[in-house]
Amino acid sequence: MAEQPDTITAASGSVDAGIIAAKPPLRLSAAEHRRLARRFYLRRSAVGYLFILPNLIFFVVFLVYPLLSVIPLTFENGGIISPAQWVGLQNWQTVLNDPIFRQVITNTFEYSLMAISAVFIISFGLALLLARVQNNRSTGLIRAALYFPTLTPVVVAALIWNFVVQPDFGILNVGTHALGLGSTNWLGNTSLVLPAIAMLEVWRGVGFWTLLYLAAILGLPRDLFQAAQLDGAGVWQRFIHLTLPLLRSTFIFAVIWATIANLQLFDSVFILTDGGPGYSSGSIVWYIYRMLFQFNLPGVAASASLVLLLITLVLVVVELKLLRMRRR
């Protein structure tokens, strides 16, 4: 075996030459460190960005850009089929002083409150029931039957609902007749038209939310419930102290999604009532549609749409804060 060169003696000629002249440790400057770290990070995440790029392009082109381009529209008249004219805050004044706009905001809130609370209570109850009969053969059939209305396009559902609420032969009125309550002019009564439209949303939405809650309930850890049962907790106590808190994140998601969706009510109103009788069923989006397409006032429509955006953002933030609050 060849002798390893004695680099020390070879280098210096004598053992006393000294201290081992080891290579100095590799040291990078801060800038070089940052450059290398950035390159490493980019290399690692490049593939991820490439995957989300198509959706990002879609997001920017169809959501961000239209949203930003609506803002200058609020300060102009025309701009769609005629040249735009700067009018300053006139459109904002028109919208904020319009009693019809105030009414449609009220209508939209009333409708959302009715629809969201009804759908959630009914679908949560159904989900709890379905969770109990999970191992039954008919569960799949029940789930399909519940979900079927959700699959129906909104326009078709509204057209069907027109027949359901028909005063002479609609199912609802056949039922109220049988109960001795007589027939009801659901869509022609200013007090009942919003509940009638909310019922349509309940009919369509219950299936979806039931399955959502069912999936969440079935995903809850069984051992916690078994432990609680062993400790003597009753059904109600397990529900209040285990089920509800464990489903908090599902509730947060459901409330926010339902709020955003219901504030954008349009299709049912357009098909069933076109905002009538009077303006008692008009919604914010219906108002925006009317201003833009029927009255050719894109500036007013743009201002109204930004107001809707602000309302939605505020509501979502408030809901998040309330739902995320923990009991002390």
Binding site: G188, T190, G276, P277, G278, R290, F295
Partner: peptide, 21 residues
């Protein structure tokens, strides 16, 4: 020019009359 808008704005008043309000 505003006939569409006029009819859409003024009709709910007549409709309220039809409703007896």
């Amino acid at each position: 020019t505003q006939m569409r808008q006029i009819l859409a704005l003024m009709w709910p008043n007549i409709e309220s009359c039809y409703h007896g309000q």
